[in-house]
Design a protein around this nucleic acid. Structure first.
Lengths: 151, 151
DNA sequence: CTTTCTGCAAACGATTTGCAGCAGC
DNA sequence: GCTGCTGCAAATCGTTTGCAGAAAG
């Protein structure tokens, strides 16, 4: 619920601006989707979004997530299970990592720590550069057993 | 090509042992798949495996990858593009990270550096434990533009 | 011979798309 | 009105599965 405490109206304006920059409007359906994602503790699957945002049509959710992704509002997160997951872009939240449960597939956010970030940014960036790779951002996931699944 | 230099027969024995432990045989098809993966510079998609291992049937590749994954020989790697990718398990190679090209989807391996590993293992593990999460392993991907796509 | 593996073709299911109606400007 | 958004239903496509024959032990 950490993210739910964020400045909601500020997020709304930011989202509207991002959409307008891509010649898109912030429709009620899109607002609903963003609200659902903003209130979640981690990336959500489409079924989860449908369940949380009552009355949303499946195809509209898929279609709007594409629009929102192009506008940089949301980000697709792919894990090992069958469903794609979506979360708000880190511009709208904070940089974080993921705790991926290898048993139930659930994904929770984990705030990034400066120490890890620094080490990752430095050493890995250097190694990547050696391979002629221009890094845009990184992903760090911890795979294991979540609190609910662990005995 | 780094992995291609590895001890191939040793890998073969290890794979056979892992399969036997799961009541499975190391058939020619499975050997072929493992060879293809062992010679790759990163995780491969099924189409890439099919192209590299001439004469393999698509369904056999899918089916055998499931068997190999259950035996712990290979690992499914999911990125953002449409296809699933597979690589040899880190028991058979070394711990490494991935360079994911956000343009073409290609994935290359990047050897892990002790400094990064240590930092990640320490700080993040601690944070995860706080959330009641028992970490099994981690994934670190760098997303950016690969050498071929970058101008 | 019995069991497992292979490959073809059909089935599955998450995601995408065509289209008709409705809302916003 | 014209343009874009919604939702239903049909199409798509990566992946899975049923089945009959081939191969291993």
């Amino acid at each position: 619920m950490a993210r739910a405490a964020r400045d909601v109206s500020g997020t709304r304006d930011a989202v509207a601006t991002m959409l307008h920059g891509h010649a898109q409007r912030l429709t009620p359906t899109r607002q609903r989707i963003v609200d659902v994602l903003a209130g979640a503790a981690g990336p959500l699957t489409i079924p989860e979004i449908l369940a949380a945002g009552r009355g949303l049509a499946q195809s509209s959710v898929y279609r709007n997530l594409v629009v929102l992704e192009e506008a940089g509002v949301v980000h697709r997160v792919v894990t090992t299970d069958d469903f794609a997951r979506y979360e708000l872009d880190e511009d709208l939240t904070e940089h974080h990592h993921h705790l991926v449960c290898s048993n139930c597939g659930r994904v929770e956010d984990l705030p990034a720590t400066p120490a890890v970030e620094k080490s990752v940014a430095a050493a890995v960036e250097q190694a990547a550069r050696r391979a002629g790779f221009r890094t845009q951002h990184h992903r760090l996931d911890l795979v294991g057993v979540c609190a609910q699944c662990g005995s």
